[in-house]
Design a protein around this nucleic acid. Sequence first.
DNA 1: TGAACAATGATAGTAAAACTATCATTGCAT
DNA 2: ATGCAATGATAGTTTTACTATCATTGTTCA
Lengths: 234, 234
Amino acid sequence: MEQIVSQLKFKVNSDLYIKDPESSEIGKRLLQETVIILDKVGFEALTFKRLAEAAQTTESTVYRYFENKHMLILYLSNWYWAWLSYRMKLGLLNIEPGVEKLKKAISILCRYSESDNLIKHIDLVKLAHLIHLESGKIFRAKDVDTENKQGFFSTYKLLNERMRDVILEIDPDYPYPATLASTIIQGIHSQYFHSEHFPSLTNIKDSESDIEKFFFTLSVKMINTSKPMGNDGK
Amino acid sequence: MEQIVSQLKFKVNSDLYIKDPESSEIGKRLLQETVIILDKVGFEALTFKRLAEAAQTTESTVYRYFENKHMLILYLSNWYWAWLSYRMKLGLLNIEPGVEKLKKAISILCRYSESDNLIKHIDLVKLAHLIHLESGKIFRAKDVDTENKQGFFSTYKLLNERMRDVILEIDPDYPYPATLASTIIQGIHSQYFHSEHFPSLTNIKDSESDIEKFFFTLSVKMINTSKPMGNDGK
DNA sequence: TGAACAATGATAGTAAAACTATCATTGCAT
DNA sequence: ATGCAATGATAGTTTTACTATCATTGTTCA
């Protein structure tokens, strides 16, 4: 049987945790409650003591799963980008390379609220919301390069690579595929953040479809220069 | 005499500090050393005790300037965006609305290392670097909306509005001026971050001019749809 | 059945950070 | 010379982050 629907697809770098939180009920409750607490009071107010109480366990046990708060948020962030990568992989199956595929890819990044019901222990909409707000906190100046080498941001990079490849399929000679991909991914997330907290920095009203339109237009204009639109390459 | 060169231009919201750090030598040393410490060891490792030592003063005194670390970083961030806004205002003086003005605006955002020597007590290049890395940490989930109402992000919004206006001058009917402006500003900063720490997420080599080219192309393509390029609107 | 073992709970304690409070000193203005 | 504002010096409180240790529970398997 295909492993696609399996949770294996969401496995993140095992160096991020001490004991795999997906391997036990307590672990799953920890993830679930982390999302709820972060969504409610934010990163700064999350403590392992508070998390333990919410998940009906003890501080000691939390420390047996994650080294510290930073590792926990890194784990969640990895999980989030893995989830997006997975959705993108599934969503693009059997779609011919070309502009339509790009459109679909952007749509997947934007429509996070149409979340699949496969995952019970993590509220995906809340997770997406808090990533919009807190994702900048996963980089620690003195550690970012080391942690990058350890693969602590691998799922984020994977998603970017997927997007880059969709772009490259349309025009293998486009000189800035990675830059464009990361600009789109970062941009979509920023616009969600802005539309929620800084409406003056955006013209987005009906969030999902407007953001989608904007970044689809952007990517098409950046890639297709002289070529006629709708040309699926190849 | 014109006030443009005066430090008044860099004044930030006075609710961000208890005692204005620009009003004394110690205060300026605090800002200076904050930038140095953040650049060296990052936000997490900055403590008021450490800062006090570096600035050759005491913890008590630091607390007399800033309520806490969060306010200090908010202040610095405001200062940074005010500095960019100021440079943009100066740099665009007497330039006719149009694509050339847009080009200049983007150039100003990108060429932060050509810093003016007007400011002695803050290392502008270091400040820009650390904003690239730590700017996401200035938003606290539970406070972001309140702090926004208090004007704690006003200089960031000002810069975005300046950019938006440059876009609107070219095409007053362009439907996404604010979205495009914030995407450009955010994108430039992300690309600097990527080029330094995540080279696989970018195709930028010679940072400044490449980033500049990419975002200039992007903005022109987004604004000028049917119109011939080089048309300065009006 | 029961010995062994892994996972968790319970409790205590340490170190550092984030403040708060108080009083002494210094230097400048009048 | 006196008063005032800014700073230094010191001490203390609370909270967080983390470590250590031992008891308990439940499962496995010989």
